[in-house]
């Protein structure tokens, strides 16, 4: 490391305090910028059509109204509960699949040796290197051949292999003491039982993290559902949101109310579970 030289310690107290103040001001401004789009969205969703259309626009709604939400929730072309349901089915199924298989294979990769292990592990890691855009075309063709286009199953069936999940769980499982497993073996427990009652509890935090991250990814996924689900009633929230906003390009108040309904619930889920998500990202050094 480069040699570090410092000027002698003669900093005036005042200058230090000014520095701290600057940091706080900077952070305040930064977090306002981070929150501004959300605020602008929520405020617009409370405005009337004419108010949104006026030039230049107002910031605070002149006469806040929930009419836009009423319009959306009663719009027969927009059965929101159906789209929530589609998104939820896909996200939850994929969480269960990804968590289950990743737990098992991550554990096996960490705690067992078998011929071809290195090659298989490197293949798994390598699949993470391949951009999704490469495999989406054949992926689509496979689903088409199987007749799974336009079916929620089509978005679930291929998700049981989660390279990221296997990798994440493996990193955690490496720290399970081998003695613990061997002791169970001596007691005559079957391997499946050992996995179920000894390894799984140890992997709990990793699996919680993986589960939350998988949920977020699937809930927000856009491109792959856009390709696989072509029928309006089968689609998921992000696709519907984009559809609605192009349909009402000049009725921004409606688009923003729809955005609030789609975005805000998931932000609450995040606030409740952020501990796990943040830890998962930090520990794995990976992103979605």
């Amino acid at each position: 490391m480069a040699t570090i030289t410092f000027r002698p310690a003669r900093k005036s107290e005042q200058r230090l305090r000014f520095g701290r103040l600057a940091v706080y001001v900077f952070l305040l401004v930064g977090s306002l910028i981070a929150l501004l789009p959300f605020v602008w969205m929520i405020l617009a969703s409370l405005k009337t059509g004419p108010e949104v259309r006026q030039i230049p626009p107002s910031f605070w709604p002149e006469a806040p109204t929930l009419d836009n939400y009423r319009t959306i929730l009663t719009d027969p072309t927009l059965p929101l509960s159906l789209f929530y349901r589609n998104s939820a089915i896909i996200a939850i199924s994929n969480v269960i699949l990804a968590v289950g298989t990743s737990a098992l294979f991550g554990y096996i990769f960490a705690k067992f040796d078998f011929p071809g292990k290195r090659a298989l592990f490197w293949f798994i890691v390598a699949t993470m290197m391949i951009p999704f855009q490469v495999t989406m075309i054949p992926g689509y063709l496979i689903l088409a051949k199987l007749g799974l286009i336009n079916k929620l199953t089509g978005l679930i069936i291929g998700s049981a292999f989660n390279a990221f999940g296997i990798f994440l769980v493996r990193q955690f499982a490496l720290s399970i003491p081998g003695e613990m497993l061997d002791a169970a073996r001596v007691d005559g427990a079957s391997e499946w039982r050992i996995f179920w009652s000894i390894a799984l509890p140890q992997l709990g935090p990793a699996l919680a993290t993986l589960g939350m991250m998988t949920f977020m990814w699937n809930w927000n996924a856009y491109l792959w559902p856009l390709i696989v689900l072509t029928e309006q009633n089968k689609r998921t929230l992000p696709i519907i949101l984009n559809w609605y906003s192009t349909q009402h390009s000049n009725q921004i108040q409606l688009t923003m109310a729809a955005s609030v309904l789609v975005i805000i619930p998931i932000l609450f889920v995040f606030l409740l579970t952020q501990r796990w998500i943040v830890r998962g990202m930090t520990l794995s050094g990976m992103k979605g």
Binding site: L35, P37, I263, F270
Partner: peptide, 26 residues
């Protein structure tokens, strides 16, 4: 938490929000 909120927001939502901030007239 504040700076992380956008990460968990759907990118479609992000694009729509910013599209509105940058809207030429509104």
């Amino acid at each position: 938490t504040i700076f992380f909120l956008p990460v968990v927001t759907s990118s479609v939502g992000v694009a729509i929000m910013w599209g509105y901030i940058l809207h030429p007239q509104r």
